[in-house]
């Protein structure tokens, strides 16, 4: 398989997988928390939180990327503080992961929120009367029953992270081996004469990964739904 893909293409594929995996894993706990808060809590500013979460879905990706650069750049307000702790996002693969996570976050939260809203609060009440504290109710009832939506949201977020381009290239540029993910690599290959072959191979990989993610999510969701449905 390494023969089929050139080293530069292979590098882009591996980097993309790494960036998307970290982006998804790190945003998942926050995604569940935000989805739960939006589904079950009422608090002042709920609509503002909802709007902020969904903003990357509507804003031009370049704008999101530029805002990230302003905030997380080495001289940005957050970036400067993090830099003192040795954490740098700008022009690093971790920055690509951050950009991908933020762009994928609305899709993740949306899917999880819907599945949490579908969990009958009467079941959570029943768990409470049986002695389960709110945290245990969440872990033993809400979470397992919302699992199909959580899985779907995670896979959707992963696929979105794999395809993220605009925010990534604006925030962390297009550095081979560091921030050149599959979409950035395709873009780069198409800029040089004779790069069409490499671009086409990466396109095939991208389509393959996306299809695999969809099939996997469908299979898993069905399995979990059958389990939760009790048949």
């Amino acid at each position: 398989m390494t023969d089929w893909l050139g080293p530069a293409e292979w590098q882009a594929v591996v980097l993309s997988l790494r960036v998307s995996l970290w982006a998804t894993l790190f945003s998942l706990p926050f995604g569940i928390l935000v989805a739960y808060a939006l589904a079950r809590w009422s608090f002042p500013g709920k609509q503002i939180v909802n709007g902020l979460v969904h903003l990357p879905l509507i804003l031009p990706p370049v704008v999101t990327g530029y805002l990230l650069l302003l905030a997380f750049g080495t001289r940005g307000p957050i970036g400067a503080i993090l830099a003192e702790w040795g954490i740098v996002f700008a022009f690093r693969w971790s920055g690509a992961a951050l950009a991908a996570a933020i762009m994928a976050f609305p899709l993740m939260v949306r899917a999880i929120r819907l599945s949490i809203e579908a969990v009958d609060p009467k079941l959570e009440q029943a768990a409470a009367t049986l002695g389960a504290s709110p945290a245990w109710v969440f872990v033993t009832v809400t979470l397992p029953m919302a699992l199909p939506g959580i899985v779907a949201g995670t896979i959707l977020a992963f696929a979105k992270a794999m395809g993220e381009f605009g925010a990534t290239i604006t925030f962390v540029s297009n550095i081979p081996g560091e921030t050149r993910t599959i979409p950035s690599a395709i873009y780069a290959f198409l800029q040089v004469p004779g790069g069409e072959g490499a671009a086409m191979r990466l396109v095939i990989v991208a389509v393959g990964v996306a299809m695999a993610a969809l099939v996997l999510s469908e299979l898993f969701a069905r399995r979990v739904a059958a389990r939760v449905g009790g048949h």
Binding site: L123, T129, L130, A132, G230
Partner: peptide, 30 residues
Amino acid sequence: HRRRIGYIFQEGRLFPHLSVRQNLAYGAWF
């Protein structure tokens, strides 16, 4: 969850993702 009550609801409200055995054991665990 601190009242130590056993509440039998009109619609049962069993946990659909747990087996009958796990449903029965749920309250004992807490």
